[in-house]
């Protein structure tokens, strides 16, 4: 494979220190709490698929993704498309924490006139690069952005996040072929493989496995890791960055609803109602390290 010569040594050389790891873990706890709080404040929302992404969003926005909250459309920034747009609340917590907009906005989630709608909207929210929500479309749009960056000879990276349920959509695989054919190695994509979709377990609704095998067969440089493990995430991103000539898919095994005791792994946690009291209770649990 082209360009992969020194990837392992480079990844090892840049492996994070214990202190860096501790900081990321603390940050993830913080973002998890903010996400549970924001959805709980409203009383209903896409909690499950938001919480399965917290570690990924943390490591991207606190270690890998070049960005400037003061200039959300900075030409040299790395782009991010959350194609599973319903996980917007997790990304909003992250963007608020990074200073793209005031934290008070989080309590306006899904309220009339809000700038934080359920599904990501580039026209409303600073830091959102593409409007998503109709599954599959964001991933194609991400490929369009990556292609545009190549035409411009802009070396920025394009990070894309799709869901395992989302991968039922044929458009995901149309985009997969397009990216491989066009050698869009500036794409580092992640599948949030939390094994659940709205109507139940993915292997019962529509079995996707062998998922990493599918991506490899579609011509993508593919890795499969634990999506809640910062060291595995870090190494996978560095390995992807060191490998050229192919787009990159990192299939992350995750747990839907991770870290919230009332919903973790629950088949009904896709879009779930819970009271603000419940939110505050679980937040206290998380803070207490239970």
């Amino acid at each position: 494979m082209p360009g992969s010569a020194d990837s392992a040594t480079r990844a090892e050389r840049e492996i994070m220190t214990a202190e860096e790891l501790r900081i990321l873990e603390a940050k993830a706890m913080d973002l998890r709490i903010k996400t549970i709080d924001a959805i709980g404040f409203l009383g209903v929302g896409h909690i499950g698929g938001s919480l399965s992404l917290i570690e990924l969003l943390t490591i991207l926005y606190y270690r890998h993704l070049k960005h400037d909250p003061a200039d959300p459309r900075l030409e040299s920034r790395d782009r991010l498309v959350l194609s599973k747009g319903h996980a917007g609340p997790a990304l909003y917590s992250t963007l608020a924490d990074r200073g793209f907009f005031p934290e008070e906005w989080l309590h306006t989630l899904n309220k009339g006139g809000t700038r934080l709608p359920s599904h990501c909207d580039r026209s409303k929210t600073p830091g959102i690069d593409m409007t998503t929500g109709s599954l599959g479309q964001g991933f194609s749009a991400a490929c369009g952005i990556a292609k545009a960056l190549k035409i411009k000879k802009n070396p920025a990276a394009l990070f894309a996040i799709i869901g395992d349920g989302e991968s039922n959509e044929g458009q995901i695989w149309e985009a997969a072929m397009f990216a491989a054919h066009n050698k869009l190695d500036n794409i580092i994509a992640f599948t949030d493989c939390n094994k659940l979709q709205i109507d139940g377990f993915t292997n019962e609704v529509l079995d996707l496995e062998n998922l990493d095998g599918k991506w490899a067969a579609f011509g993508w440089h593919t890795q499969r890791i634990n999506g809640h493990d910062f060291e595995a995430l870090d190494k996978a991103i560095l390995t992807a960055k060191a490998h050229s000539g192919q787009p990159h898919m990192i299939v992350m095994d995750t747990i839907k609803g991770k870290g919230a005791s009332f919903c973790e792994g629950l088949a009904t946690n896709h879009n779930m109602a819970y009271s603000y009291e419940k939110a505050l209770e679980v937040i206290a649990e998380i803070r207490g390290g239970k």
């Binding site: 593409m130 599959g136 490929c143 035409i151 411009k152 072929m177 397009f178």
Partner: peptide, 26 residues
Amino acid sequence: PDRAVNVGVAEANMLSIAGGMSTEGY
């Protein structure tokens, strides 16, 4: 040649790709 993109027989993909390219000013 760099500005003509043939996506193959995939019209839905083409229009979302077009949206993505438009975010970059194309």
